[in-house]
Structures are given as structure tokens and as C-alpha cells.
């Protein structure tokens, strides 16, 4: 949706340029060009923010899946009584103390939880930045439209 805001702005800018060329008002045209250029820069910045936002979303869902899996493993480890626990290290199974395995999984869950919080904060941060950029884009578009109607 918002991607179209940028390209819309560019399309708008192009139309402005053509119309201005007929009129031949140089200073006004230069101003339009400057606004259009800024619009392009902002649109690009917005797009890169969007990409990062999508990437963070992926990271987050990956972490969520890991958290789920580790939680299931922890539940299973809590359920065993007496059975031996092995950890797959490369191609071999190493015997491991159940308590140690449990604390390892808990540690990993802790780490994953921290990582998720960090990612979420980053996402919130990105969303704020995107909102700002969106406002700026709209502002620039309005500016272009104004120049066009003059």
C-alpha cells in the first residue's frame, strides 16, 4: 500500500515536469525538481525501512518457532523419570545428565526470550521511523500537488 505512495509521488512529479516544461517557468521548475528529488530519496529510505521491517518479522517468527520447540523439549524433559538423556552432537549421541539438559534448555529459552524482546523493540522502532517517513512523503506529495495547481 505504502510502496504505491512513493511511486505515485514519482508519477506525479513526472507529470509536473512535463507541464512545467510547456510553461517554461524556470525557477518554479527547479523548485519542483528539488521537491521531486527529495521525494525520491525519501521513498527509497522508506523502502529500505520496509525491507528491514520484513526481515525483522522473519527473524521474530524464526525465534518464535525455536521458542516453541524448546518449550516442548523442556516439557518432555520434565516428564521423564529415570530414562537416560542423550544429546546429538554432530553424528554421535552423548549421554547427558537430565538435570543438566534441563538447565541447558532453560538457558537457551532465556536467550531466545531476550532475543525476541530485542527484535520486538527493533520492530517497534522501525515502525515509528516508517510512520515519520510516511508523513514526510505525504507532505512532499502535497507540496508537489500545490506547485502543480499554481
Amino acid at each position: 500500500m505504502m510502496e504505491s505512495a512513493g511511486s505515485q509521488g514519482m508519477r506525479l512529479g513526472m507529470r509536473v515536469m512535463i507541464e512545467q516544461g510547456d510553461e517554461g517557468n524556470r525557477s518554479e521548475r527547479r523548485e519542483e525538481m528539488a521537491v521531486q528529488q527529495r521525494l525520491e530519496v525519501e521513498a527509497k529510505a522508506y523502502q529500505s525501512l520496509q525491507q528491514e521491517h520484513a526481515k525483522m518479522g522473519q527473524t521474530y517468527s524464526k525465534l518464535l518457532a525455536q521458542q516453541n520447540e524448546n518449550n516442548m523439549v523442556l516439557d518432555e524433559l520434565k516428564l521423564i523419570d529415570g530414562g537416560a538423556v542423550y544429546k546429538l552432537v554432530g553424528p554421535v549421541l552423548l549421554s547427558q545428565d537430565p538435570e543438566e539438559a534441563k538447565s541447558n534448555v532453560e538457558k537457551r529459552l532465556q536467550y531466545i526470550g531476550d532475543e525476541m524482546k530485542r527484535t520486538q523493540n527493533h520492530v517497534i522502532d522501525l515502525e515509528k521511523k516508517m510512520e515519520e517517513k510516511r508523513n514526510k512523503l505525504q507532505q512532499l506529495q502535497a507540496q508537489l500537488k500545490q506547485g502543480q495547481s499554481k
Binding site: E76, I80, A84, V85, Y86, K87, V89, Q96
Partner: peptide
């Protein structure tokens, strides 16, 4: 007994 893969590389004897 059998070995059960419970995920993330852990196997439990059951």
C-alpha cells in the same frame, strides 16, 4: 527401551 527424538537434538530413552 527405545530412543525418542524430542527435538533440538535431545533424545530420551523410554
Amino acid at each position: 527401551t527405545v530412543l525418542v527424538d524430542i527435538g533440538t537434538g535431545y533424545y530420551v530413552e523410554k
